[in-house]
């Protein structure tokens, strides 16, 4: 696997009038991955994507697309973006929408975009405002892919789609990944949508990166240990505990990079992706609450 970095952030921060949306963000997304950008609402997922497109400029730090910082003369030619609300010109027909894509992009692949529309079964003479949510998403995806991006960012692409449309959109997307080998960054706050789809993970919470890496590595690095709660204190080296919860006599502890525990009463499991992400999000939430309590 090549080590080309599709998207990288260093000390990336964005401050709005109401405060920091992102702060001190650093991560690297290797090319060829299908990455999940996960976090609660307001974690800074959309801000991060807007910074990559150049719609926003960072307050601090840098973001790089295949090594280049965003410029003002348009979004990086290797970067495709599908915004959450899938904006399209409502009074354009589907054919006119593709025409617009061609007019706005020197690297436009009309045949490819037309093929995607045909596969979606959307009539080309239909007006955008007469299409269903699923069809609109397919058209917006065709416009984003028509640029032939090497990195495609999708902000909550499956929100407000019915289950059938979700499947179709994901199937299309994954088929194009299989064909082109492009890198994908997909944001969502519904983890179940991403299981089996993503092989790379980026967890954002409270404006910062909590966890990032290949899913297999992350799952292998972590253990979910269940044992008697009176025994849990001091059992694990400090710094390795991600989250520790106890219900009565039983304690559930997520640890990272710790040696296998060999003590009676303790059972180790490999966490699922969902358990892992939720533990990180919960611990970030607690840390934030503590910080707020201290500063108050």
């Amino acid at each position: 696997m090549s080590t080309t970095i599709a998207l990288a952030a260093a000390e990336l921060g964005k401050r709005y009038k109401r405060g920091w949306a992102l702060r001190g963000c650093g991560f690297e997304l290797p090319a060829g991955r299908v990455a999940a950008l996960v976090g609660p609402n307001g974690a800074g997922k959309s801000t991060l994507m807007a910074l990559a497109t150049g719609l926003l400029t960072p307050t601090t730090g840098t973001i790089r697309i295949f090594g280049d910082q965003p410029v003002r003369s348009g979004t990086h030619p290797k970067l495709g973006f599908l915004a959450q609300d899938k904006p399209l010109f409502r009074r354009f027909t589907v054919a006119e929408t593709l025409h617009a894509g061609r007019a706005l992009n020197p690297t436009w692949d009309q045949a490819y975009a037309e093929r995607l529309i045909a596969e979606a079964g959307v009539p080309t003479q239909a007006r955008i405002n007469t299409l269903s949510g699923g069809q609109r998403t397919r058209v917006a995806l065709a416009v984003a892919l028509g640029r032939r991006p090497e990195l495609l960012m999708l902000d909550e692409p499956l929100a407000d789609l019915d289950p059938v449309a979700r499947d179709e959109v994901m199937q299309t997307l994954m088929a194009e990944v299989a064909e082109t080998g492009m890198t994908v960054l997909l944001s969502s706050h519904v983890l179940a949508e991403l299981d089996g789809v993503c092989d790379h993970l980026l967890v954002l919470a409270g404006g910062g990166v909590r966890l990032s890496g290949d899913v297999d590595d992350l799952l292998a690095e972590h253990q979910l240990l269940i044992g008697p709660s009176e025994d849990s204190a001091g059992l694990f080296p400090t710094g390795s505990v991600v989250e520790s919860r106890s219900t009565g006599r039983q304690a559930t502890v997520l640890v990272r990079g710790a040696a296998p525990v060999d003590r009676p009463g303790w059972v180790a499991h490999e966490p699922t992706l969902e358990e892992l992400v939720k533990a990180y999000l919960r611990s970030a939430g607690k840390a934030k609450a503590v910080a707020e309590a201290v500063s108050a």
């Binding site: 497109t53 150049g54 719609l55 410029v71 003002r72 003369s73 348009g74 979004t75 030619p77 973006f81 915004a83 609300d85 904006p87 399209l88 010109f89 409502r90 894509g101 706005l104 992009n105 020197p106 690297t107 416009v143 640029r147």
Partner: peptide, 17 residues
């Protein structure tokens, strides 16, 4: 209002153009 500026400005067109 229709957020189509996001569509236009995330193609290969700068905001001044």
């Amino acid at each position: 209002e229709q957020r189509t500026h996001v569509l236009s400005l995330t193609q290969s067109v700068g905001r001044t153009r």
